[in-house]
Amino acid sequence: MSHTAHIRSHRKPRRSASTLAMRAGVAGGVLSTLAVAGASGSANAAEPVTQTLELPTLTADLAAQAAQSADATQQAASNYQLQAERDAAAAKAAKQAKADLAEAKQKAAEAKKKAQEAARKDAAARASRSAERTTLSTTASTGTATGSDTTSTSTSTATGSDTTSTSTSTATGSAAAVISFVKAQVGKAYVSGATGPSAYDCSGLVQTAFKQIGISLPRVSQDQSTAGTQVGLSNLQPGDILYWGSAGSAYHVGVYVGDGMFVGAQNPSTGVVERPLSYDPPTGAVRVL
């Protein structure tokens, strides 16, 4: 045995080619794997970065657009509702205006009709007054009264050329009852269509007065103006019915109470009054007693 046999050699032992090849293959595989993994990792790492940068931007834009679209839709809906409300209000106002106009036209027509009627009556009254302008108080005292219900006396004293005459007229019987009744109503109110006891219109007063003595007269002045015998205004007797206007179309009546006076329900302002014939000269008269 050599004396150097137990001494280790400083040279590295030889490795076989197969071992080296295997190690090289392993190392290559590992490197390849790492390279692939690295590449894959780099790709994977790069992709999330790209998505992280882009997705928030896309999401924000879409959200803004959606918000704008929602605002626009809401605004449009509000505009439609406002317009609908305005249209409804305009339609309602137009309908009310139409109704108001119709009512105003109707009231105007009624007022015009009343004014025309008042003008007609006033014209008739003026015409009758101008046609019959007489002083009936004088003619009544100088006229001759006849009839069973009226007593007329006249006395005359002559001394030389001087003559004094007096004339009096006193109603009796049914005429006195009519006159007493109408005079008792003086001061009461005038109400169109009323026949007493607290208010009258002109024909209502005349009708009620004659009803007290059992005489039934028509209700309206037109008919009352033809209810008896026509008499001249110069030949009146107490109890005669006076009328204004034409016989058969008279618009007012009263009762002659003697001494040139009459009683009538004149109008809402005066009510039932006693007045001289000169206050409002009548057109004619009828006698029913």
Rank of each mutant, 00 (worst) to 15 (best):
A175P: 04
A285F: 04
A88E: 15
L217N: 05
S246F: 10
G248D: 02
G264A: 08
H252L: 02
Q106P: 07
C202A: 08
V178E: 05
K92I: 13
A70T: 09
E117L: 15
A39M: 11
S269E: 13
A131F: 06
A118Q: 13
I241Y: 03
Q75K: 13
V36Q: 09
G38A: 05
L58I: 10
V273P: 00
A194G: 01
K183Q: 14
G160Y: 02
I7C: 03
Y190I: 00
V253R: 00
D87T: 14
V272D: 00
A177G: 03
V263M: 03
A250Y: 03
V49R: 12
K98H: 12
L31Y: 05
L82C: 11
S16D: 11
G260R: 01
R120N: 12
V255W: 00
A265N: 06
E85K: 12
D100H: 14
A108R: 12
V186S: 00
K188F: 04
K98M: 10
R8F: 10
E110H: 10
D162N: 10
G29M: 14
A127Y: 09
K98A: 13
S225A: 06
R219H: 07
H10W: 04
F262G: 03
Q222H: 05
P282D: 00
P13F: 03
A115S: 11
Q230E: 14
T155I: 03
G271W: 01
S180K: 11
A63C: 05
V220A: 02
Q68M: 14
G260Y: 02
A45M: 09
K121Y: 05
S40V: 14
G271N: 07
A108F: 08
A184L: 03
Q51N: 09
A124T: 09
G160D: 04
Q68R: 12
E85W: 09
Y190M: 01
V36D: 05
